[in-house]
């Protein structure tokens, strides 16, 4: 039982991939005050929880009545990330002043609760049972939360130019994630 939960949590954590999202997240919050950062992560996490619960308990209804599948959300989320990456690399320097700008999208979804992780949770609940799935989800989300909160402390040490470099790499990573999600969505249609 413990092994199952451990394996499930690990798989979920792998798909959530907070470490991979850190460069993107960091380039957003670099100018925000500590309070704002905490508020942003809180709102984003709550939104992510909402999204997960929505799909776990209301998934069937959504898929039946709204007639779109998870793969469609994957492609849409991927496109969003791709456009985000392109904008991060070429667009004007956007001042992310307040949590309102980024907390829900893109941080809450797709970074903290992407369609891949939604699919994984649904798979866990189908393979084992709903309680296993919810436990894994809870653990993964808590760990993820602390990673995001801690990230801001780590980057306080970085200078202005290394943050620029990180923003540049983050743009590349975001665009690549976007393509990855689009392809995963397309190939599983």
């Amino acid at each position: 039982m413990i092994m199952t939960i451990l394996k499930g949590t690990f798989a979920l954590f792998w798909i959530l991939d907070p470490l991979g999202n850190i460069p993107i997240y960091v380039s957003f919050i670099r100018n925000m005050s500590n309070e704002d950062i905490k508020r942003t992560v809180n709102i984003a996490s709550m939104f992510a929880i909402l999204i997960f619960l929505l799909f776990i308990f209301g998934g069937q209804i959504i898929f039946t009545y709204l007639n779109f599948k998870l793969q469609h959300i994957m492609i849409a989320g991927g496109l969003l990330l791709l456009i985000l990456g392109i904008d991060m690399m070429f667009g004007p320097e956007r001042e992310v002043k307040s949590y309102k700008d980024i907390a829900i999208v893109p941080l809450g979804m797709p970074l903290m609760s992407g369609p891949g992780s939604i699919a994984t949770v649904l798979l866990l609940s189908a393979t084992y049972d709903i309680y296993v799935a919810l436990t894994c989800l809870a653990i993964a989300l808590v760990v993820q939360y602390f990673i995001y909160i801690a990230a801001k402390d780590i980057i306080k040490f970085a200078g202005k130019n290394s943050l620029r470099l990180m923003a540049y790499l983050a743009a590349l990573i975001a665009a690549s994630f976007g393509i990855e999600m689009i392809i995963k969505g397309l190939t599983s249609l």
Partner: peptide
């Protein structure tokens, strides 16, 4: 590194290709 953060090589190549295309248009 790409493997570690979960990006397939082909996704990275396609993404870089698209970005390069955008750069070249400019």
């Amino acid at each position: 590194f790409l493997d570690l953060i979960g990006i397939s090589t082909y996704s990275f190549m396609i993404a870089c290709g698209l970005l390069l295309l955008y750069i070249s248009m400019g």
